[in-house]
Structures are given as structure tokens and as C-alpha cells.
Amino acid sequence: MINHLKTPSETSDQTITTATKVAAVAETATMTCPSVSSNSDRKFSRSYDVMHIVLRIGSLSASLISVFVMVTAKEKSTISIYGFDLPLYSKWSFSGSFEYLVGVSAAVAVHSLLQLVITTSRMLRKSSAYTSRNHAWLIFVGDQVFAYAMISAGSAATGVTNLNRTGIKHTSLPNFCKPLHSFCDRVGVSIAFAFFNCFLLAISAVLDVLCLPN
């Protein structure tokens, strides 16, 4: 009978090789979202990438619509105060809050376009949307910052629009949105898309968090 016992050196070499393979697998798992150790995991990871692409397209579209509707908001009219007809001319650039909303929306559009290009290109190469945990953290922070900035800009613009629509109590300041209804409507649409963009960025941030533990 032939004895197939391995020598200590062979056992040591095999142990080192196994440890190296385990480390390589663990390192590879951190580069995907989620890990793609099986066909089902690959499909799940691919669905994450598709959801990211859809969210980026939605965020980009909402940002562009918000900017376009706001920068085209302007109107001329007249208003009667104490029997005197006074000319009115309103434009989005007359308000710092509206300019703030346009600036934040434009920044979110650039961010969404950049992430859309990166995610799409990596998906076409059959790679994960995230190159590493640090990359996932970076995108998560970016989505959070832009979401809060959109909330801030939308809230500021809402305050100005509400003031134009209701006037100031206990004063004779009229409702400027009556003679400037088209202007106020366009501003309202722009603000609505800004808040919708906040919702899309929040969902994207949740997906980023789901990717971080892997």
C-alpha cells in the first residue's frame, strides 16, 4: 500500500495558496455592488446599475427642465394701486433665490450627467458602477450634498413665490401673481421639478448605501 501523506512543505505551500485565493476573492468582492460570485448576484448587480442609470437620467431631465422653465420666466403687466395703474415687469434674475435655484439645478445636472456617463460606460464594459468602497462613499456624499442643496434652493424660491402670491399681511402690498400669473406659474413648475429632483437624489443615495457594505 502506497502512503500518500503530504510533507510539511507541501502542506504549507497549499495553505499559502488557499489564503492567497481567499484574499483575492475578498478583494474582488469589494469592487462590485453587490458581489458577483454567482449568476444570480451578477443579475442583481446589473439591476443596481440599471436603476442608477434610470435615476441619473431622471435627475438630469428634472434639472434641465427646472433650469429652462425658470430662465424663461418673465412677464410684463400692470397693477392698480389706490386707483393708479402701475407697470410691472418681473424676471427670474430679479430674485437671488431664483438665481440660487438655477445655479444648484445646473450643478446637479452636471453631476448627474457625469455619473450617467461613468455608470453607462462601466456597464457596457460589464463592470460594476463602483470601482471601490471609496468611490461608493464619494458618490454617496455627492448625492447627499446635492439633495440638501436642492431642498435649500427649492425652499428659498418657494418663500419668494408665496410672498408674491399672498402679499404681506397688514400692508397694502398686493398679490403680484394675479397680474403676473404666467410668471408665477412657470416659477412654480420649476420649483416642483426641483423638489422632485431631491426625491430622485435621495433614492440614489439609498442605493449607494446598499453598495457600501460589500
Rank of each mutant, 00 (worst) to 15 (best):
T158A: 09
F140I: 02
L116M: 00
V145M: 11
V145N: 00
A153C: 02
A109M: 06
R133E: 10
W137P: 03
L101A: 15
L138T: 13
M150Q: 15
E99R: 14
K126E: 13
D143P: 01
R125C: 01
V141A: 10
V117F: 02
L88S: 06
R125P: 03
A106P: 02
N164K: 10
W92T: 06
S93R: 05
F94R: 09
Y89D: 09
S93I: 00
Y89G: 12
Y89I: 04
M150S: 15
L86C: 03
G159E: 06
L86M: 11
S90Y: 15
S93T: 07
M123Y: 12
N162Y: 09
D143G: 07
N162S: 14
V160A: 07
G167M: 08
I118Q: 12
L114R: 11
T131V: 12
T131Y: 05
L101M: 15
N134D: 14
F98A: 03
G103T: 08
Y89T: 08
Q115M: 14
I151H: 03
L86T: 08
K91G: 02
F140R: 10
S95Q: 07
L124K: 12
Q115Y: 12
T120G: 05
A136F: 01
V110H: 03
T166R: 15
S97T: 07
S132P: 07
A107Y: 01
W92R: 07
T161E: 11
S97I: 00
V160W: 02
N164F: 15
W137M: 13
G167N: 04
S90Q: 11
K91H: 15
G142M: 01
S152Y: 11
S128L: 05
H135E: 13
Y130N: 06
S97A: 15
L101F: 03
A147P: 00
M123D: 12
R133V: 12
W137T: 04
Y100C: 03
S97V: 04
S152G: 13
W92P: 04
K91M: 08
M123N: 12
T158D: 06
F140A: 14
S95F: 10
G96H: 07
L113N: 01
G103C: 07
I151A: 13
R133F: 10
A147C: 09
G154A: 01
T158S: 15
V160I: 10
R133Y: 11
T161V: 09
G103R: 11
I139N: 07
L163K: 11
K126F: 10
L114D: 12
V141Q: 07
S127G: 03
R133H: 13
S95M: 00
D143R: 13
A107V: 05
G96A: 05
A136H: 04
S128N: 05
A136R: 06
Q115D: 14
H135Q: 09
V141N: 04
R122L: 14
V108Q: 03
S121K: 11
S128K: 07
N162F: 08
A156G: 06
Q144F: 14
F140D: 11
S105G: 06
Y89Q: 13
L163S: 14
F146I: 02
W92Q: 06
L163A: 15
T120V: 09
K169V: 05
T161N: 14
G103V: 01
S155Q: 06
V108A: 03
S112T: 03
A157Q: 01
F146D: 06
L138I: 07
V145T: 10
